[in-house]
Structures are given as C-alpha cells and as structure tokens.
C-alpha cells in the first residue's frame, strides 16, 4: 500500500470515528427532541397518535402555543416546577454536605483502603435502581425495619410515618445520587497537592481557615460537576417521588408521567418536558462557562 493511499485510509477512519458519536446524538437526541417539540405545538385529539398532525389537509402548518399558555395560566404547573427545583436543590446540598467529607476522607486514605472505599461507593450500582428504591420502602414503612428497631428500643411507642412524605423523597434522592457527588469530588480532591494546605497552615492559617482559603476553592470544579450531576436528574426524577412520596408531593417528573399516560395529553406533556429542559439548560450553561474558565486558569 502506498503512503498516499494509507493517508487517505487514515483520514477516512478519522471521519468515521468522529461521525459515530455525531450520528448517535443526531438520531437518539436531536431527532426525539424535534419530535417532542413538534408534539408540544399540537392539539390533543382522541386518535392514534393522540395529537393533531403538524400539517393539515391543505398542507398548512397547524402549530399552536396553547399548551405553553396553559402551563402559564394553571398555577399547578408553576408550583410543581418550583417545588421540583426546591427539592432538587435541597437534595443537592444534602448530597454535597454528606459527599464532601466522604470524598475528602477517601482521597486522603492510603492507597489500599482508598480502592476499597471507592468500590463501596460504586457497589450499589450493581443492583437495579428500582430494586434499591423498593428496598427503602421496606426500611421506611410503618412496620418497616427502622420503625421496628426504634419501637423495640422503646425510643417510640407508635410507628413514625416516614413513607409518603417529603422526608422519604429526600432520603431516596440523597441515597440514589450521592455517588454522583462523591466521585467527581474525589477526582478533584485526590489530585490536589497536600503541600498547599500545609503551606497555608505554615503561613498562619488555622486548619479551618486553610480549608476555606485553599481546599474549597481548589475543589470548586468538582463541587460544580457533582452538584449538576445530582441536581439535573433529581429535578426530573419520577420513580422516587412516585414510590416514596405522598400524593401531595407532586413533582414535575410525576406530572409529566401523568399527562402522558393517565391523561393521554401528549401535547401538554411535551410542553411540560420542553419547559423542564429549558430550566435545566441554565445550570448546564453555568457548568460549561465555569469549566472553560478553569481550563483557562490551569493552562
């Protein structure tokens, strides 16, 4: 084979390699998104599929913004979005408060224990997410493990209603998404030069001051990545509020599901999904900006 032909061959391979993820994103992300966007601009009908076609019989576009204006007029949706943002935010902060010391401890542990601890963090992923949430039902319900133990210890004399409360949702969210906080935090903390903390102390900073002056700012990329990895899926979470939450803890994921499958109002459900996406774009843009700034800072 001549070198010129070899080069052409390499270039072809290069293009194919780059094309694969692009085609993947195009087919499985952009196309479905376009379909959802299209459905969100239609009217619901009792038909198969249950929405009006994009073009009517004359070939004119039949787009309508009714679904979006309905989202604005019915207070339920605004309240649900806000509640979802709030609960996702609280869950994220709880994960951060729990995950930071964990990640710090793992990063500072000696090498052999470190691998074991990381394995323990990842271990839950070997069991289906759904099963693990069901397991929490067994732990939290009125005759569940926690209430039984507390009663047996005479701490309480009648069961505490953990299940079907916001508390249960927080437990589920924090439990499920904690690894997504710990892993990126671990990655940044493990890379950090311990001399920097000692240098701060050497210059007169107490351990707590050294933490806020040095460790925390340098851990920021990990904090941001971890928070987004928790916040974004927690925001649209359906299974946890459905299984652990009460009827009053109406979150946007559940509303979305109900609009699709209970009301069969696909256009409205699509509009709910599009607005959810818009809300999530804000933190994602924030992440990208901050990553770009960090990349510049450590070039």
């Amino acid at each position: 084979m001549s070198t010129a032909a070899g080069l052409r061959h390499d270039l072809l391979w290069q293009k194919v390699t780059i094309a694969i993820p692009y085609v993947w994103l195009l087919v499985y992300f952009l196309a479905p998104f376009a379909i959802i966007l299209k459905i969100s601009l239609a009217d619901p009908v009792i038909a198969q599929p249950p929405f009006t076609p994009f073009f009517d019989s004359q070939g004119d576009i039949t787009a309508t913004s009714d679904n979006y204006s309905f989202l604005l007029t019915d207070k339920l949706y605004a309240v649900t979005y806000l509640k979802s943002v709030f609960m996702a935010l609280v869950a994220t902060l709880l994960c951060l408060a729990l995950g930071f010391p964990m990640a710090y401890g793992i990063a500072r542990a000696d090498e052999s224990t470190r691998n074991l601890l990381l394995l323990l963090i990842v271990l839950p992923f070997w069991i289906s997410f759904l099963l693990r949430v069901y397991a929490w039902m067994g732990l939290l319900n009125n005759y569940g493990v926690i209430n039984n133990v507390l009663m047996w210890l005479n701490v309480i004399d009648k069961p505490i209603a953990f299940m079907y409360t916001d508390f249960a949702i927080y437990v589920g969210l924090v439990y499920s998404y904690l690894p997504f906080m710990v892993l990126p935090l671990y990655a940044t903390l493990e890379r950090m030069d311990l001399d920097l903390v000692e240098a701060a102390q050497d210059l007169g900073a107490r351990p707590s001051q050294a933490f806020w002056d040095v460790t925390w700012p340098l851990a920021r990329p990990g904090v941001i990545a971890g928070c987004l990895l928790v916040f974004i899926p927690a925001m649209g979470e359906y299974v946890i509020p459905y299984l652990l939450g009460g009827p009053e803890s109406l979150l946007i994921g559940r509303v979305l599901f109900d609009e699709f499958f209970v009301n069969r109002d696909w256009p409205l459900a699509s509009a709910v999904a599009i607005v959810l996406l818009l809300i999530l774009v804000v933190p994602i843009v924030f992440l990208q900006r901050s990553q770009a700034r960090d990349a510049e800072g450590h070039a």
Binding site: L196, E198, D202, H298
Partner: peptide, 18 residues
Amino acid sequence: PYERPVNMMFQSYAIFPH
C-alpha cells in the same frame, strides 16, 4: 505550625494556584 515563628519554603513551592 500556624503559631510557630517559623516559615517554610516547600520543595514543590506549594504556591496557591488560584
């Protein structure tokens, strides 16, 4: 260390990158 009248220059320099 933060109370000692002693300062150290680290081998890695340990300059705060931020």
